[in-house]
């Protein structure tokens, strides 16, 4: 047993990478939920993004093209969800679950023939001097671009919701769609755009797994990351910066328990692995949960 073998700097640096796919997907879902829509299909959109991104990268050799295609693929798939829930007024919970089922099947079909191929390496940023600095170097300057894009996305969403007029409208639609409609906002259009943004982000998150973290295509490779993203949005009580904390906490618990194991501590893994979810419930209780968007999950029909 040896605490000394755990290097906190590397621990933080690696949990930042571990958290990135979840941050990307959760950032999208946060916007979707702030617009009052609950899309439980994150897992399906992530895995679709993972395979679409992988296919494009495998053919073009460019990771960036892959990420672009993944975002597009995720957005297209989410458009299906938008069509059903916004125009055909289907139930969001059931539609989201169907979307996950659909996405898992679609990705496995698309991915036939892509097993066992390795994706080209996605270069890390390497700034001379800075990356080599002790402590801050590995944590702040040693990652691949998507890690920074994930964090930048959080910042952008925060600014968008807080300062922009469009963000205000989005929040209004999410809080009370009838009132927003009465004020003349296009509830369906805004929500459709939000859903597509969510799909694009989930696609990016999935592609990060298939292009950077693993980087290879295997069926079902997201292995539940989409569900964790959903949990983190709740944990964050729909606040962008808390989302970052939540994702690091979730990733951190995993990385920490692995670290403790490797250092020779006998720890009850099962109990540690359920702790983030219990923490999420506690946060929900402590936040008094009045903070959930008012219209979350409710069907909106304009003609009343």
């Amino acid at each position: 047993m040896d605490f000394g073998s755990i290097n906190p700097v590397l621990l933080v640096a690696s949990l930042m990478v571990a958290a990135t796919p979840i941050i990307l997907a959760a950032a999208g879902e946060l916007i979707v939920e702030r617009a009052g829509v609950l899309n439980l299909g994150v897992e399906g959109m992530m895995i679709t993004g993972a395979i679409v991104g992988f296919i494009v990268t495998a053919h073009t050799g460019s990771s960036w093209a892959g990420f672009g295609a993944a975002a597009l693929g995720g957005a297209l798939l989410s458009l299906l969800f938008a069509l059903l829930t916004q125009f055909l007024l289907s139930n969001q919970v059931a539609t989201g679950l169907a979307l996950t089922l659909f996405g898992l099947g679609l990705s496995a079909l698309l991915g036939q023939g892509y097993n066992g191929i390795k994706a080209p390496e996605f270069a890390k940023i390497d700034i001379p001097v800075l990356t080599d600095l002790p402590v801050v170097g590995p944590i702040l300057f040693g990652h691949d671009p998507m890690v920074y894009i994930g964090i930048a996305l959080i910042a952008a969403i925060w600014a968008f919701l807080k300062y922009s007029r469009a963000g205000l409208v989005l929040r209004a639609v999410g809080e009370n769609h009838d009132a927003a409609h009465a004020l003349g906002y296009h509830v369906m259009r805004i929500r459709t755009l939000a859903i597509m943004f969510g799909g694009a982000c989930a696609g990016l998150g999935g592609a990060y797994i298939s292009l950077v973290r693993v980087p290879q295509w295997t069926d079902g490779m997201t292995a539940g990351a989409g569900w964790i993203a959903l949990a983190i949005v709740v944990f964050a009580s729909w606040q962008p910066w808390r989302l970052l904390i939540g994702a690091y906490l979730f990733g951190g618990v995993t990385v920490l328990q692995l670290n403790l194991q490797a250092a020779g501590f006998a720890i009850p893994v099962e109990y540690l692995s359920m702790s983030p979810y219990i923490a999420t419930i506690l946060v929900l209780v402590l936040m008094n949960a009045g903070r959930a968007p008012g219209s979350l999950g409710r069907v909106f029909h304009a003609s009343r």
Partner: peptide
Amino acid sequence: FDPAKEADAAKVLIEQ
């Protein structure tokens, strides 16, 4: 089989 978790596990071992 959980690629993300396996990656984490490998990284942790390397870091130690």
